[in-house]
């Protein structure tokens, strides 16, 4: 068996052990497992590994408290800066609008009033 074929068998036995093969493909793989002791041991190894993967998957490692706290703190700081930026942005915009109005660059400003008086 050439290397590529061996890798294909390796993957196929893995799919069988994971219960992902159906119909003809599953039956062919079963007969391969029954005929070849090396492939049988491979299937047993896969099943053992999958059981271990599943067991680790059931574990629920708790994240360090620092991770949770820091993420929340950063969000609060970021929100504060966002609000500050909005506030100063708003004040700045208001001053700018007032200045534009004063110069009469927009209709109805002080310059227009003076021009009307003249």
């Amino acid at each position: 068996m050439i290397e590529a074929d061996r890798w294909e068998v390796l993957e196929r036995i893995g799919a069988y052990a994971a219960g992902e093969l159906m119909g003809e493909e599953a039956r062919e793989t079963e007969s391969l497992i029954l005929e070849n002791p090396e492939v049988r041991r491979l299937a047993a190894s896969y099943i053992s590994m999958m059981a271990l993967l599943g067991a680790i998957g059931q574990e629920t490692p708790e994240p360090p408290e620092a991770v949770v706290n820091r993420a929340i703190r950063r969000a609060y700081v970021s929100a504060f800066f966002r609000q500050t930026e909005n506030l100063f942005g708003g004040v700045g915009r208001a001053y700018f609008d007032a200045f534009v109005y004063y110069l009469g660059l927009r209709g109805g400003g002080a310059a227009d009033v003076r021009a009307d008086q003249a």
């Binding site: 490692p61 991770v67 949770v68 929340i72 929100a79």
Partner: peptide, 19 residues
């Protein structure tokens, strides 16, 4: 932008992210 809601999301889902 509600940080309280975000904080609760972090508390609830930090296990998934860390895992």
């Amino acid at each position: 932008g509600e940080v309280d809601a975000f904080a609760r999301l972090v508390q609830e889902h930090s296990g998934l992210v860390y895992r």
